[in-house]
Design a protein around this nucleic acid. Structure first.
Lengths: 309, 309
DNA sequence: TCCTTTATACTCAAAATGAGTATATTTAGA
DNA sequence: TCTAAATATACTCATTTTGAGTATAAAGGA
C-alpha cells in the first residue's frame, strides 16, 4: 500500500508506536486504575517487532510491568504527538490506548501493586454521597475563564453548564472526558500549567490523565448497553454487590428495586444455590453470570422504529 | 516516556503509520463510500511530519486523492500488520482508520469520483426489500464450514445463527463486522482466498473491506443514539427523505408514523416554512436541523435506574 | 372525475420506567 | 429475651415509551 502510491520519502512516515493501558478493577466499592511509577503513569511500552498484534504487545507490557493478568481488553483511542525530548523533535510518537477490565488479585498486600482510586485523579466525578464540594470551586474558575473572553463567552458558558450540569442541565456521568478537557483548556489542571490543588485532583504524567478520563467515560457509557460489569465481578456475588460495583463506576447511586428488576429482566444471571451472610443483615442469594449469554446477548437495543414485513 | 523506561533499542518500535478513510455519503437512497483506484481501495496515505495531527493528516490525504471536503470525522480503529512487501518484512505498518460523513457533491458527473454503493461490497447487508437471496448461499457455506470441524462445531454454529439471524435469532443490522469476519474465517471471501462470487460481493485491497464493515457497523449503531444522520442530509429536507436516509444506512425499512413521532419527540428539527413537491403526491414540509441542538443534545439516554436524593 | 401517491394526524394496547411501600431474615446489643 | 438496625426481596401504581395500525388531507395524472 504504502509503496505503491506516492513518491514521497517513506522516512517521513516513520514513528514510534506506544501502547498504553488503562486497567480497571473495582475493589471495596472503589473503582481503581493500575499505575506504575508513583501512581502518576499508566503501564505502557513500545510496540515491537516481536509482538504478534497490538493487543498481545500490550498484554506483554502490562504483565511485565505489573504482573497482573488481563482479561477483557478494548481499544480506546489513538493519538499522535511530536516527541518531547529535544533530540527527537523530528519524530512522532503514536500512542494507542486500551481499556482493560480485571478482577483485582487479592493476593499481594491488598491493593498494593499500583492500584489507585479513580477519584483521586477525578474527585469531582464521584456523586455517590452528594455533589462534591470541590465542584463549586471548579465551576467558579471555569466561569471566570469563560468571562475572560468577550466573544466566545456565551458559547463557552453553555459548554460548561452542559458538561457540569449547571443551569438546569442534569449531571451526566458520561461526560467525564468533556469535563476534563474543559478544565484543561481553561488551564485549571496541573498538566496544563496550573498549581496543584486538592480540588483538581492528582495530576499524571503526559496525557495519561486524559486517557484515564477517556476510559472512564467509555466504561460508564458501555455498562448501560453491554454486560461488561461482570468482567469486574468475582465468580459469585450478591445483587447488592453488583449494584455497588455499577454505582462505583457510574459515580452515582441507583434505585435498588428498579436495579434488580432491570437485572432479572435481562436474564443475565443464575442463582448458585448458596447464600452469602457477609453483609450484616439478612443473608443474600449468590448469583453467577450466565456465560451462555456472552454469545446470545451481545444485545443491542433496537431504538429504530422497525416495520415488519 | 519511551526513552525513560526500558533499555531496549528504540529502533524496534519504529513503524509506518498509515491513515485510512472510510468516507460515506447517501445519495438517491443509496449509501456510498468514497474509493480510489478501481473502486477497490479506500483513500489513504502515510502520516507525515508535516501533519499537525492524525485527523488533519487524513483530511489532507482525502482532499488530495479525491478532492472532496470532509466534515464530520471520527476514529474507527487502529491495527497493525507486518508489512507485505518482501524487502520490508522486518517492519510494521500501523493503520489508523477513520469514518467520515459528507454530503455528496452533486457537481462532477453525478456520483463520478469514486463513489460506490456499500452494498456492492456487502450485498447481504441490504434488507430493505427483503432478505437477500444470496444470504442462503452464504449461510449454507458457513454451515458446511462449521460442520467440518467436529470440536468447535456447536460453538461455530451458534455464532453463525446469532450473526446472521438464523434459528429464531432476529436479524441485527449492527453485526456487519461479525458477519464479515465469520465469512473471512470460513474462507468465503476473495480476500481470504475464495474465488470471486456474486453472493460474496466485490472484494477490496488488503483489509479495506474489513474497515468498511467496521464503519458500517459503527454508523448503524450510532444513528440510534446520536444525531449524526444530519451530517449526510442537505440543508433542507422532508421527513420522508430523512427516513429513507436512515433506512439506507440501516439496510432496513422503518415504520413511518413511529419514525416521525420519534423525530419530533427529540425536537431535533424546525420547519423552514417552505414545501417540497418533488415527490409526486401531496407536497411535504421542509425541515432543517436545529443546530443549537449540537451542544445541548449530545444526549445520552440514561438506562440506569437512578435514585434521586 | 377518480385513482394513485405521498403527507400528516390520531388511536390503542402492551411494555418499560420511575418512585415508593410492605414484608422477610439476620446480627448486634439493650 | 426482646428490640433495633441492617439487609434482602416482593409488590404496587401511575406515567412514559413503544409497536402497530387506522383515518384523513392534498397533490398529480389517466
Amino acid at each position: 500500500m504504502t509503496t505503491e502510491r506516492i513518491g514521497r520519502p517513506l522516512k517521513n512516515a516513520l514513528a514510534h508506536a506506544e501502547l498504553i493501558a488503562m486497567l480497571t478493577a473495582v475493589t471495596g466499592e472503589e473503582p481503581r486504575v493500575m499505575t506504575v511509577r508513583r501512581g502518576d503513569a499508566l503501564p505502557s511500552g513500545p510496540f515491537e517487532l516481536g509482538h504478534r498484534s497490538l493487543q498481545s504487545g500490550l498484554r506483554e507490557w502490562v504483565s511485565e510491568q505489573t504482573g497482573h493478568p488481563v482479561g477483557y481488553l478494548e481499544q480506546l483511542y489513538t493519538f499522535a504527538d511530536r516527541d518531547r525530548s529535544p533530540e527527537e523533535r523530528a519524530r512522532r510518537t503514536i500512542s494507542i490506548s486500551y481499556l482493560g477490565l480485571v478482577r483485582e488479585q487479592a493476593a499481594p498486600g491488598a491493593g498494593k501493586p499500583g492500584w489507585h482510586g479513580w477519584y483521586e485523579y477525578f474527585p469531582w466525578e464521584d456523586h455517590r454521597r452528594s455533589r462534591p464540594d470541590h465542584l463549586a470551586t471548579i465551576t467558579d474558575q471555569l466561569r471566570a475563564w469563560s468571562e475572560a473572553e468577550r466573544l466566545r463567552h456565551e458559547h463557552r458558558q453553555r459548554r460548561i453548564d452542559f458538561a457540569f450540569g449547571l443551569d438546569g442541565a442534569p449531571w451526566n456521568e458520561e461526560f467525564t472526558l468533556h469535563r476534563y478537557e474543559l478544565m484543561y483548556e481553561a488551564g485549571l489542571v496541573v498538566e496544563a500549567g496550573a498549581a496543584p490543588d486538592r480540588a483538581t485532583g492528582q495530576p499524571m504524567f503526559a496525557d495519561h490523565r486524559r486517557i484515564l478520563a477517556t476510559g472512564i467515560a467509555r466504561l460508564r457509557a458501555k455498562i448501560k448497553y453491554r454486560p461488561v460489569v461482570f468482567e469486574l465481578m468475582p465468580e459469585n456475588f450478591t445483587l447488592l454487590q453488583l449494584q455497588r460495583t455499577v454505582e462505583a463506576l457510574a459515580g452515582l447511586t441507583l434505585h435498588k428495586p428498579n436495579f434488580r428488576r432491570l437485572i432479572d429482566q435481562q436474564e443475565l444471571l443464575e442463582e448458585t444455590g448458596a447464600m452469602s451472610s457477609e453483609s450484616g443483615g439478612r443473608p443474600a442469594k449468590l448469583f453467577r453470570y450466565r456465560h451462555a449469554v456472552l454469545e446470545e446477548r451481545a444485545l443491542s437495543g433496537s431504538k429504530l422504529p422497525l416495520s415488519r414485513h
